[in-house]
């Protein structure tokens, strides 16, 4: 029976090996996410480049804010025609504010990781900083929703039905915004989870590298938001 325990012990691999494997795993997931983000950027640049009939930022229709489909129907029945609406880009300042909030949250988490790594007493700092990062991320999500509500919507008539549509610029902003929100939700989950894990003691000074895995992902998300914001704030008008 004694050799049995040797064997069982052998099945538990050294933490460094497990960590190495998990890091590779995270990098691969990030790789997949890079392609996903790349596909969205491709979409954005493609639609801006083709700009069919000058439609990138303009739409033939009735600005929708608060108006119902029957309003449009009424205008059409009165012999009125739809107007061509020219949009303006969303506020660049607000977009950079969003980036700032995200980068700050990720920075807080990273700082927490540094503290956790440096000493056993860094754990309480880590808990506090992860919670702050999580709160920052929630703020980011709320602000992103506010931003998405600025994307103009239009009513238009097509094939006998009233459609609610976005310009291609608006469509891209919507897709990028939703993608950012999904990422922020995941990061918030990971940040608060880190805090609870550290609070109950499973994430400790000795296991600081578990926080590093999350930081890798957060840094990528922050980086992506910088790149995306650069693209959408510079390459936007017709």
């Amino acid at each position: 029976m004694s050799d049995l325990h040797v064997e069982v012990a052998a099945h538990h691999e050294a933490p460094e090996i497990v960590d190495h494997r998990q890091r590779l795993g995270i990098w691969l997931f990030i790789g997949g996410d890079v392609v996903t983000t790349g596909a969205l950027i491709f979409t954005y640049l493609y639609l801006r480049a083709v700009n069919t009939n000058g439609s990138w930022m303009s739409v033939v229709g009735l600005p929708a804010n608060g108006r119902s489909a029957s309003t449009l129907q009424g205008i059409l029945d009165d012999g009125g025609s739809m107007i061509k609406n020219i949009e303006t880009p969303l506020s660049a300042g607000f977009a950079w504010l969003l980036v700032a909030v995200l980068v700050a949250s990720v920075g807080l988490y990273w700082l927490g990781e540094v503290r956790l790594r440096s000493s056993a007493s860094g754990r309480s700092a880590f808990i506090a900083l992860s919670v702050l990062a999580g709160i920052g991320l929630i703020a980011y999500i709320v602000l992103s929703i506010v931003q998405l509500r600025q994307v103009p919507q239009y009513w238009r008539a097509e094939n006998d039905s009233m459609l609610f549509i976005y310009s291609t610029y608006g469509s891209c902003m919507l897709a990028l915004g939703v993608s950012a929100i999904i990422h922020a939700i995941i990061l918030a989950f990971l940040s608060f989870g880190s805090a609870t894990r550290a609070a109950v003691g499973v994430l400790s000074h000795e296991k600081w590298y578990q926080a590093r895995l999350i930081r890798y992902f957060s840094v990528w998300v922050a980086l992506a938001s910088v790149v995306l914001t650069l693209v959408v704030t510079t390459l936007n008008v017709n």
């Binding site: 069919t52 549509i165 469509s171």
Partner: peptide, 23 residues
């Protein structure tokens, strides 16, 4: 993106909204 076009009125692939099937 295709679901977004159908559900919320984006125009990625909708020619009349400026999108394109080539994308």
């Amino acid at each position: 993106l295709n679901l977004a076009d159908r559900m919320v009125g984006t125009s990625f692939f909708v020619a009349s909204g400026g999108g394109t099937g080539w994308l």
